[in-house]
Simulated scan of single mutants.
Amino acid sequence: MQSDIEIYVLSCPTEKIITWFEEEFSLIKKSTPSKLCTKVTINSNGHDIDVTILEKAAGKRFTSIWFESDKTPWENDISCAKQVFESLGCEVRCNFQGWEEEGNQDPDQWWRINKDEEGPFIWN
C-alpha cells in the first residue's frame, strides 16, 4: 500500500473531477484555497481522505489529483489511474513505480493511459 497516490489528468475540468467524487465516494467537504487549487475530503470504505486538486500542475493542461492518504481504495498510482480513465475518459498519467525515498527509478519514467494506448513512457 502506498503512503499516498498522485495522478495527472489531461484537459479535465475540476468540476468534472468533483462530480466523479460525488458519484464514487461520499464527499464530506470542499474548499477552494486559490483559483487553481480545490481541496476536498472524501470518505472511502469508512476512511476520510484529503484530496488536493491542482490545475496547471504540469504545464497548462494537466491537473494533479493528490490523495493524501494510505487508505485509498487502490493498491498504487496505476490502479487509481485506470479507474479514473475509465470514469472520466481523459488521459491520465502517473509515476510508473510509485514514489520511494530511496528508489532508483527514473524520474522521467511515467505510465500513460489514453484512448489509444496504455503503458510506460518518458515524460520530460
Rank of each mutant, 00 (worst) to 15 (best):
E68G: 00
E101G: 04
N124I: 05
F21V: 01
A58V: 10
N124G: 05
R61L: 14
W123D: 10
S26D: 14
F25N: 10
P73C: 13
N114S: 11
T19V: 14
D70M: 03
N43Q: 15
W111I: 00
M1S: 10
T63F: 10
L36P: 02
E117G: 08
D77R: 04
N104S: 05
W111G: 01
D4S: 12
W99D: 01
C90S: 13
Q83C: 11
E86P: 00
W74A: 08
W110E: 06
F25I: 09
Q105H: 06
T72P: 02
N43M: 15
I49V: 11
E91A: 13
Q105R: 04
W123Q: 10
W99E: 03
K60N: 15
G59M: 02
L27P: 02
V92K: 07
E100V: 04
V51R: 06
A58T: 09
N45F: 12
F85R: 03
P13Y: 12
D4Q: 08
N76D: 13
I78A: 07
L27A: 01
C94S: 09
E23I: 01
K115N: 14
F62G: 01
L36D: 13
N104E: 08
P13R: 12
G119Q: 06
K71C: 11
T19A: 14
P107G: 02
T72E: 02
I78P: 07
G103K: 06
N104A: 03
N104T: 06
R112G: 09
K29L: 10
L36C: 10
W74M: 08
A58N: 10
L10S: 06
F25M: 09
G98W: 04
C90R: 05
K82I: 13
W123T: 00
S26G: 01
I5F: 02
I17M: 04
